[in-house]
Simulated scan of single mutants.
Amino acid sequence: MKPNIKPQNPNFSSGPCTKRPGYTLNSLNTDSLGRSHRSSIGKDRLKKAIDETSRLLNLPEGYKVGIVPGSDTGAMEMAMWSILGQRPVDVFAWESFGAGWASDVAKQLKLDNAQIVTAEYGQLPDFSKANPDHDVIFTWNGTTSGVKVENAEWISDQRTGLTICDATSAVFAMEIDWNKIDVATFSWQKVLGGEGAHGMLILSPRAVARLESYTPPWPLPKVFRLTNKGKLIDGIFKGATINTPSLLCVEDYLDALAWIESIGGLPAAIEKSQGNLQALVEFVQEHDWIDFLAQSPEICSNTSVCFQLKASDEQIKAMIKLLADEQVAFDIGAYKDAPSGLRIWCGATVEKADIVALLPWLTWAYNQVTA
């Protein structure tokens, strides 16, 4: 039978992700709007966003956080173009975005000393191929495959190369061993449900040392430049952004960070996301027509959860449309480059009650399109 209870919030998109519970535009501080980002209030709000990010993530001493243009993609491109080339590089890819970084290394930067290690959707590549003397690029969570790294134990503590991690759908949702990471990037519109266009760049002291001791052989656009005359442009990491940011988006991000603090900080956000995943795990265990794309439980994402179904591509498309028409689930189709299926975001801004309310609708819609 058709369920009679709908999710109060049907937004399950994997980016931009749903806003925090109780979000309203009226909750935003608007004092900085209409002011220059170089004004004292503009700099203060940008610095607060940086400082709160560092504090809530409990970053190690000496790590720097900067706000950069171009979302997570801009932050990753900035890091790769500014840092790579001194050493050989190992790129690990198992879904669309990781494949994009591998393509940039091979086809744009055209690095001859690159090793690209891949895996099929649902699996992880062989991390034992990581050379501690090489730079390493990987995604912590494969947003388009629903597969995350289990841990960072494969990264050597004695490495001489740098680890560059695309962590955009993992930061504020998964435990990250920051001592294993030299460069990390993420964006506001993922786990925190913030607005787009702004990226976050996290640098370890080792990454800063590389930037100040190595100049890549290719020209760098202005928005990629992290150094000036061989020194880190420190203002980027204190609120003096490279280009003009949206202070409205900054206020939106600060609101999300304040909400993380209010629920109990990073541990509470991780626990909430894992609890949402558990509801999906129990549903899969009870139904034989749906399964995780991830091939084992320990690598199953607790944010971008991807599913494969016993249904044709056309049936899955019809199911997605039916759920959207009923206004119970928006934007839950698999990523365009991924295997056909469903993708349900279950980060901390999603309420478990909404996940639970959605589940009977999945069964109903599946039965409707496969009858």
Rank of each mutant, 00 (worst) to 15 (best):
P216V: 11
A209S: 11
H198T: 08
L266Y: 04
G235S: 09
L226F: 03
L277D: 10
Q295I: 12
W289F: 09
D234Y: 02
V223T: 11
I236S: 02
P219C: 10
I233H: 00
K238Q: 14
I263H: 08
A207S: 12
K229N: 12
I236N: 01
A279V: 05
E298V: 06
G196N: 09
L247Q: 11
S273Q: 10
T241R: 04
N302I: 11
H198R: 08
W289Q: 03
L266P: 03
S273P: 08
K231A: 13
G265H: 04
A256F: 01
A268G: 09
G230S: 05
I290A: 05
S204A: 13
N228C: 05
M200L: 11
L220E: 04
W289D: 06
G199P: 03
Q308H: 15
D255V: 00
A279D: 12
Q274Y: 15
A279I: 07
N243R: 13
L248D: 14
K310V: 10
R210A: 11
P297R: 05
K231G: 06
Y253A: 03
T241A: 05
L248Y: 13
V191E: 05
G193C: 13
L257Y: 00
D291G: 09
W259R: 06
S262C: 06
S246T: 03
I299E: 02
M200P: 00
E195T: 11
F283N: 05
P267N: 09
I236E: 00
K238P: 07
Q274H: 15
P245V: 03
P297N: 06
P216M: 08
L226A: 03
E195D: 12
V305W: 01
I236D: 00
K238T: 13
L201P: 03
F283C: 11
L280V: 15
L248S: 13
I242E: 01
P245G: 01
L293E: 10
L257F: 01
S301R: 08
A207T: 10
A240N: 09
L211I: 04
I233W: 00
H198D: 07
T244V: 13
S312N: 07
I242P: 01
L280G: 09
P217V: 15
V284Y: 06
K229S: 13
S301F: 05
L220G: 00
I242H: 01
G196V: 07
E282C: 10
P217L: 14
T241W: 02
T227F: 02
L203G: 04
T215K: 15
A256N: 08
D234P: 01
E298Y: 06
E286F: 02
F283V: 11
L293P: 04
E282V: 11
A256V: 00
G239D: 07
D252T: 04
R206I: 12
P245I: 02
K190P: 00
F292N: 02
L192K: 08
L226V: 05
T303L: 03
V208R: 04
L201T: 03
E261C: 04
M200S: 05
V250W: 04
Q274I: 12
Q274D: 15
I202W: 05
T241D: 04
L293C: 09
D234T: 08
C306F: 11
A311Q: 13
P205H: 09
E271T: 15
K231P: 05
G275N: 15
T244C: 12
L280M: 14
L232M: 00
K222W: 06
A269C: 14
